[in-house]
Computed example of a mutant assay.
Amino acid sequence: MDNQIKWTKIGLIALIVFAIVSCKKVESPEIDGNKMGDFSIEFDNLVGDYGLQFDNMARPYVNAKGEPFTISRIQYFISNIKVKKTDGSEYVVPQDPVEESYFLIFGDDRNSRFAKVKVPEGDYTQVSFILGVDSLRSTMGLDKRTGVLDPTAGDHETQGMYWGWNSGYIFFKLEGNSAVISDDQQGDPTGRKQFKYHIGGFGGYNAPTLNNLKTITIDLTKAGIAQVRNGYRSNVHLFVDLMKVFNGPNAFRIAEHPNVMFSEYSQNIANNFPTMFSHDHTENGVTSEDQL
């Protein structure tokens, strides 16, 4: 019996020691600001409390004005990514090469939802980016506007994001259908009544014009800072609530504004854009080869 008690005590001591060792905090490697790590922003499109579904006539979305609608297309540019460390220092992702600093998010292509860049190792509490294409890049020669910025990419009536007649990028394209649109509005071949919001305007080249560029700033401290380390990827997961296009600070009726493009009213819609983005969580320590 004494031996049994003895070995039981030894076993308990071993378990306690094992638990202490197992719970010991593992110190992360010292941050080397000269090393670069993989950083990405994930844009997860939603509509209010629901996932994004296209042309769901059986279950349309309903905005704050009580108007039912469906979505058939959503595309937008993300550029000029900047991150801020815990010490307040900032890093701006270089604009060149274009393919690594300008991104076009397609709602119907899940593979396009990541904006992947490289930033120095560090702990980041804030990320910001521009929704749109900045004025400097918009006025550069065609040899400086390649990849997703190629003005000839995509059919203008579908995936194209450039106004040939206006020599400017469409920063944000949202299209869909709603029964509230009056009969005199143009419908598609199926008889559905379309709305189209093509929002652009970088401020003008030779003279001031519409400026609908919006800088989006995301605080990462509440849902997880980004801990960027060489050899790993840190991914900031954002929700993009498309319902806020209609229900933001400048709420409007689809019936009254079914088609908005290069007009003064586009500024009202653009002012709703910053409210679309919210930080859900951050994934740190993901191996660079993994697919999120």
Rank of each mutant, 00 (worst) to 15 (best):
Q159G: 15
N284P: 06
N111I: 01
G204R: 05
H279F: 06
F114Q: 13
V26Q: 11
G122E: 04
S101G: 04
P274D: 08
S112V: 01
D96C: 00
Q159H: 11
G107Q: 12
Q291L: 13
N206Y: 07
Q291H: 13
L210N: 10
W7N: 13
L131D: 07
F172I: 02
E121S: 07
D123C: 08
D44W: 12
R73T: 12
P60I: 00
V47L: 06
Q291R: 14
S178K: 04
H279A: 06
N34V: 07
F273S: 01
L242W: 14
N177T: 04
D184C: 07
S101H: 04
D87C: 04
G231E: 03
N284T: 08
D150M: 06
H156F: 12
S72A: 11
Q227W: 00
S40P: 01
T209V: 08
S112C: 07
D150Y: 05
W163G: 09
N56A: 11
I254A: 01
V93F: 04
N166K: 15
H281R: 14
D108I: 01
N271C: 05
D143V: 10
T86N: 12
A14L: 14
G187I: 01
H281C: 07
D219A: 08
T146E: 08
A64K: 08
N166Q: 15
L131M: 08
S72Q: 08
D55I: 10
G176P: 04
Y205T: 12
K82R: 15
R192E: 11
G285M: 05
P208S: 07
G164M: 13
E99S: 14
M140W: 12
T209R: 06
Q194N: 11
K35H: 06
N206M: 07
K116P: 00
K25L: 11
Y91W: 11
N272A: 04
N3E: 09
V47D: 05
F106A: 09
D183K: 13
Q75R: 10
I199Y: 03
T8L: 13
M57D: 13
D38G: 05
Q185E: 14
D290V: 12
L174S: 05
D155T: 10
S128A: 09
T275V: 09
E67Q: 09
H198S: 05
S135G: 04
E256S: 12
D55M: 15
Y205D: 10
D143N: 14
K35P: 02
L292E: 09
I218L: 05
N272E: 06
F195L: 01
N272G: 05
Q186G: 01
V260N: 04
M161N: 10
L213P: 03
D108C: 02
D44H: 14
Q185C: 12
T275I: 05
P60Y: 02
F18M: 14
R145T: 09
I13A: 14
I254L: 03
I218A: 02
Y76V: 07
G132C: 03
S138M: 03
E264F: 02
Y197G: 05
V148T: 03
E30S: 14
K118M: 14
V26W: 03
A14E: 02
R137N: 08
Q185Y: 10
E100G: 06
S234K: 05
K118W: 06
I74N: 07
F262R: 11
K196T: 10
M161S: 08
K82V: 15
I71M: 11
I181P: 05
T217C: 03
H257A: 03
E99P: 02
G200A: 10
